[in-house]
């Protein structure tokens, strides 16, 4: 599958921000297996772009296609199929079940369309340093820990595209590197594509392509 953007621009962003962008109002194709970095200063619509790509919002002009399918016409049922099979995401605002345990947050995603066995969850959690938190409620975890939970959750399903919206904002360099390694490994395993949106470039993610928003 490829994701194609055709002259997409948000309805709510100032014209000058759109004219200088390599993404807005362009014709873009994200290819299978490609790693793309989107560098976006605050307020340029980074999170909006991720939400458009994931189908959460429709307040844009232009069109976005999953393969040949214009996602504007997809119904909730079709989106759920894409989200459990083809497109996974780490939200900037994480969107975790705060009152549930870390394990339950991860299991509820894994059970939907299991890519890994249950034991893999503990392995990943240990690798990112949150193994001891598995049976604790998410609300008791720090924001950095919650970010790692959100990253591990995104990896519990098969996907062709992994959308990452500032996934490391609250992680130190060491944890960033660990998380990036895990993400790259899992994405390679699926021969999938990764679209990472961040405020500035970083040295541990080597994209095939960088785009300024």
């Amino acid at each position: 599958m490829q994701i194609r953007l055709q002259q997409v621009s948000p309805d709510f962003i100032e014209e000058e921000k759109i004219t200088g962008s390599q993404v807005w109002r362009s014709d873009l194709v994200f290819h299978p297996g490609e790693k793309v970095k989107i560098i976006a200063p605050s307020g340029s619509g980074k999170t909006s772009l991720m939400h458009f790509l994931y189908g959460l919002r429709k307040d844009y002009s232009g069109d976005i296609f999953y393969a040949a399918e214009n996602i504007r016409t997809l119904d909730a049922e079709s989106f759920s199929a894409y989200r459990s099979r083809s497109v996974s995401i780490v939200f900037q605002d994480l969107r975790l079940f705060m009152s549930q345990t870390v394990l339950l947050n991860l299991e509820v995603k894994r059970q939907l369309n299991p890519f890994h066995t249950e034991s893999k969850i503990a392995e990943m959690a240990n690798r990112l340093g949150i193994g001891s938190k598995l049976n604790k409620p998410v609300s008791t975890c720090s924001y950095g820990e919650q970010q790692r939970i959100a990253i591990i959750r995104a990896l519990q399903q098969p996907y062709e595209f992994l959308l990452l919206d500032e996934p490391f904002s609250h992680l130190d360099d060491n944890n960033r590197r660990l998380a990036m390694d895990l993400l790259e490994e899992e994405t390679s395993l699926r021969k999938a594509s990764m679209i990472l949106a961040d405020l500035k470039p970083n040295d541990f993610f080597k994209p095939d392509r960088s785009l300024n928003l």
């Binding site: 959460l56 049922e77 759920s80 989200r83 459990s84 969107r95 509820v108 995603k109």
Partner: peptide
Amino acid sequence: QLLLTIGYSPHW
């Protein structure tokens, strides 16, 4: 809402 967002089918 979150279950639907992470890919659960509304029908299911």
